[in-house]
């Protein structure tokens, strides 16, 4: 080993599956963390050359610039349908969708429910930040009761606007679901747990076990009107009680992966 390399050992680098570019995400947004974890998992599993991602409509609409794998951009909410088409005609590929809560749980509820219910062998990363980020902070289906958004200026009134939707709990009831878990990324411990879940979700797909969905309870410092640190505290204090972390469906065979 050369003398210089001994001195400068690389301990941290960009995953191969992440493109060498800057993202447009706001400071403190969890999207960046989740992107990185997904890319690390792709590297570790050696699936970069056969992975196809599908970006949603939402803040992560440009995700295809950030990952160095084949990527398609779906219409708002339709990523699971598009993923179904891509995966069915090439079952040997690894196909994942990356979706926000407006995309997955409002306009795309039908597509996600049916894709899971068919047991499509695809993976969804579901970023729940309780708000519509990209359009400037309107109410999402996951917005908490009383939460103020630009379209619930007096706080979400559940009598008028309904209740926050718990996606994992709902999707876990479907027979086609193989792996449905909720994680967050508010501290290093939770980030490590999230990473493990992402790896497992891909492995579930690689083993052909059925639908895998990892929800990430996430933040939106910009539209929540908080500093990044405050937003993480807000997740812990307000979101996790309503959206408890945990494993909602772990089908047979997943434990052994």
């Amino acid at each position: 080993m050369a003398e210089a390399e001994k001195l400068e050992r690389v301990v941290f680098s960009r995953p191969k599956a992440l493109s060498d570019t800057t993202t447009h995400y706001c400071p403190g947004c969890i999207h960046g963390i989740v992107h990185r974890l997904i890319a690390e998992a792709i590297d570790e599993l050696g699936i970069q050359e056969r992975t196809i991602g599908i970006a949603p409509v939402g803040c992560s609409v440009l995700a295809y610039h950030y990952f160095d794998v084949d990527f398609a951009e779906a219409a708002h909410g339709r990523a699971p349908a598009m993923a179904t088409g891509l995966k069915r005609v090439q079952p040997d590929k690894i196909v994942f969708t990356y979706q926000g809560d407006g995309d997955l749980a409002a306009i795309g509820t039908n597509e996600i429910i049916h894709a899971v219910n068919r047991g499509e062998n695809i993976t969804t990363f579901f970023i729940n930040n309780a708000i519509y980020g990209m359009t400037g902070g309107q109410m999402a289906p996951t917005t908490l009761p009383g939460q103020v958004t630009t379209s619930t200026p007096f706080g979400r009134d559940v009598r008028a606007a309904g209740y926050p939707l718990r996606v994992c709990e709902m999707v876990a009831t479907l027979s086609g679901a193989a792996y449905v878990v909720r994680r967050t990324a508010i501290n290093p411990r939770e980030i490590r747990r999230l990473k493990k879940a992402i790896l497992t979700a891909f492995k579930v797909q690689m083993a052909g076990l059925g639908y895998s969905l990892v929800e990430v309870v996430s933040n939106c410092p910009t539209n929540w009107g908080m500093t990044p640190i405050e937003s993480l505290e807000w997740i812990e204090k307000n979101m996790l009680p309503y959206y408890p972390l945990g494993d909602f469906k772990v089908a047979e065979g997943v434990e052994n992966l």
Binding site: A72, A75, A81, T84, G85, L86, V89, H114, R118
Partner: peptide, 26 residues
Amino acid sequence: RVFLQAESELAAVNMLYGAACAGVRA
């Protein structure tokens, strides 16, 4: 070959879109 009854025409056309992106006749 692939046949799938979609949950709606909205889903069907997006499945078509996905398969077309994979470069097959759909």
